[in-house]
Amino acid sequence: MGSLKHVPLWSLGFRPFFLAGAMFACVALAVWGLWLYGHFPQAQATVGMLAWHRHEMPFGFATAIIGGFLLTAVPNWTGRPGLSGWPLLGLLLVWLAARLAWWLPIPQSGLLALQLPFLPLLVLVLGRELMAAGKRDNYPILVVLALLAGCQALTLAGIAQDDAGLQRRGALAALWLIAALMSVIGGRVIPFFIQRGLNRTNGAVGHPRQTQALLIASLLAALLIGTGFNEVPQPWLAALYALIGTLHLLRLWRWYDRGIWRVPLLWSLYLAYAWLLIAVLAMALWQLGVLPQQSLATHSLAVGGMGGLILAMIARVSLGHTGRPLKPSSAVSLGFALVLLAGVCRVFVVPFASIGLGLSVVLWCAAFAVFVQGYTRTLLTPRQ
């Protein structure tokens, strides 16, 4: 029984969670798109598909990738062994049970209960390792994960009470918490990847104070959304999003190197991060009453930012941690472009033509399908 940790798939967290998360990204968006066009039955009759979509994109898809990344990164930060073998399989099964529960004939109370354990278990596993190694500078990540669990509880409470407003608050607050994580992790790794990928001796470096400012501002934005301040536009809140946008813009300016356009693993990260800037500027415009739909800001963050950064990161991390050359196939490089185009269709085409929604779904699914097709063997086989 103990030999399971020697099976490549269960040797480190990124392998099963990146693969499962990418597969789920394809399936979940395909289901959502088919339902929108009247070709797929609803999830649990007591819940509804909009509630399912709101919950599953941040708490199903994104948390799988976040979990896989952190279960791999924390051992590097601490020098301690990562979760592997049967405990890793068990954690994946907890995540998988939550995804399947929406389609099983079980009481709503059972469905909601199955959603809750994954994030607290992830906090427990990661917190134990960080505390044992005394890595206090990484404790904010645990705080963000704990707040994500709180947002999930808020979303599930909205589902239990059939309160669409509560559901929306929980899901949107979770998206901005994920943006906070992307800001923190992106601020650490993107300049390093650019410097290393282009062999620059004096490339951009991370700025800890700027990262702290982005983290605090993003947490404040999530808190205000979760507590209901975002139900209607609040002009004074535009200043908060303008501040976040300024910090993102400074990063993008400092990180820029024209050499990135020759390296798909770099331009994909850079352009995906730029979607965070688009999202916060769109939120500022919505707060000022200039932008009519907050959903455009939300999907800038969710599709272009979250989707784009996740795809680029899992492609890069999977190659690096399996000892492969850091050169994705041309198909995977095309996938990077497809997910960014999915963001363009969802944000810039949908307001003018409804076909943009269908195009966005197809492009997203194709992008993650390319990853699954190109990386399944890599994730299932030993390190080279």
Rank of each mutant, 00 (worst) to 15 (best):
P208N: 05
Q210T: 09
A221E: 02
E231R: 14
R196T: 14
H207M: 08
N202I: 06
F192E: 03
R209K: 06
N202H: 14
I216Y: 07
F192I: 06
Q234Y: 04
N202M: 12
A213R: 06
A204K: 08
T201Y: 09
S218I: 01
R209V: 06
L219Q: 01
A222H: 00
G206S: 15
R200T: 11
H207C: 10
L198V: 11
T201N: 15
I225N: 02
I225M: 08
Q234A: 10
T227V: 02
L219E: 03
T201S: 15
H207I: 09
I216C: 06
L220S: 04
E231P: 03
Q212R: 10
L215N: 04
R209T: 13
A213W: 00
Q234C: 05
R200N: 13
N199Y: 14
P235Y: 10
A213F: 01
V205I: 11
P235L: 13
V232I: 09
G206L: 08
G206D: 13
S218A: 07
E231D: 15
L220H: 02
R196D: 12
L220I: 08
T201R: 15
G197K: 13
G203H: 10
G226E: 01
P233Q: 10
R209S: 12
G206T: 10
H207S: 13
G197N: 12
L224E: 02
Q195Y: 10
P233S: 12
R196N: 15
I194C: 08
T211C: 03
R200V: 11
V205F: 04
I225E: 03
A213S: 05
